[in-house]
């Protein structure tokens, strides 16, 4: 049996004695080569878990093993297993050039200078940053800085990549670049990626598996397809009628919203016959139907359902 890439067992973190745990007896096993989306509302414990995995925070109880190396007990070996891009922080030195940053972070992970140089050359070329390798990162755009941060996380070619909100604050093009990279990391290079993001389309597109964390505990942990399939038992239907007429009392689960020159009636139903009943009702009133669309729930619908009313930003 393969050693899991990430093995979190009974992880608990309480910041103040007697306080609410930020992470509460959380267990998660991630097999090598998996891209796992780690989702949850703000304050759910995502970043706390990632920081413990990265050795930046100690656990109150439980363990995190990276490729079998306990982060707390075998710190040096564990640090060599991963690269990380952390949320909300400057991940690279703005006063250094892209090249200098990559060499430095490679050496921090124990690479020889020659190995770091060779790998930095490859990464900067792949990221279209080679021409600007000698420019200081402080002068780069946000997207380019994030590219350098991701390259720095990958400089030692780690088996595991921890990405905490890697697309936060990026424009569409930069987000696309980062998404492509994450896909390539898993598909072509067999990396294990633990990804937190609030951009759920990124999760839906990239993740093999989704773990939803709520109040420090795993609420759901399923392959992405399986998670969505479970929710697709109830599809969303949207009926548009012409104008803004007085509507009859709608069947349970349907709501009406006035749009520019139509009224949209939307509902999630398990049985399509409920939609026929709605249409009959509207026809009986003599209303003109403009369109009927059926859509399956996306990861955002699933996420919102799983975390209840918790707001996410």
């Amino acid at each position: 049996m393969n050693t899991p890439a990430i093995e979190i067992t009974g992880l608990t973190k309480t910041y103040r004695p007697g306080g609410e745990p930020a992470v509460d007896d959380l267990s998660l096993t991630v097999e090598p080569g998996t891209v796992i989306g780690f989702l949850g509302p703000n304050g759910a414990g995502k970043t706390t878990t990632i920081k413990i995995a990265a050795g930046l925070l100690s656990a109150t109880a439980g363990t995190v093993r990276l490729n079998g190396h306990d982060v707390a007990a075998r710190r040096s070996a564990a640090m060599a297993q991963f690269g990380a891009v952390l949320e909300g922080s400057r991940n690279v030195y703005w006063t250094l050039t892209a090249w200098q940053n990559l060499i430095y972070f490679g050496r921090l992970k124990g690479m020889t200078r020659a190995a770091a140089r060779s790998r930095a050359t490859a990464l900067l070329t792949e990221l279209d940053l080679w021409e600007r390798r000698d420019d200081t990162v402080g002068g780069f755009s946000r997207g380019m800085q994030q590219k350098v941060a991701i390259a720095a996380a990958l400089i030692a070619d780690p088996a595991i990549v921890l990405l905490d909100e890697p697309t936060l604050g990026l424009d569409v093009a930069a987000t696309r670049t980062v998404k492509n990279w994450i896909a390539e990391l898993s598909n072509d290079r067999g990396k294990t990626v633990l990804l937190t993001t609030h951009q759920l389309d990124v999760v839906e597109e990239l993740c093999d598996r989704v773990a939803v964390i709520r109040a420090g505990r795993i609420a759901t942990d399923l392959p992405t397809g399986e998670l969505l399939a479970g929710f697709r038992l109830r599809d969303t239907y949207e009926v548009h009628v012409e104008g803004h007429p007085d509507l009859p009392v709608l069947p349970a689960g349907f709501t009406a919203t006035a749009e520019a020159d139509t009224t949209a009636i939307t509902g999630r139903v398990a049985d399509p016959r409920e939609v026929y009943d709605l249409i009959d009702l509207l026809r009986a009133r003599g209303l003109v139907l403009r369109s009927l669309t059926q859509s399956q729930p996306g990861i955002e619908d699933v996420f919102l359902t799983l975390v209840g009313d918790a707001r996410h930003g």
Partner: peptide
């Protein structure tokens, strides 16, 4: 960057 530097071997 201090946190980044601490993720060293």
């Amino acid at each position: 960057t201090f946190a980044q530097s601490q993720m060293s071997v």
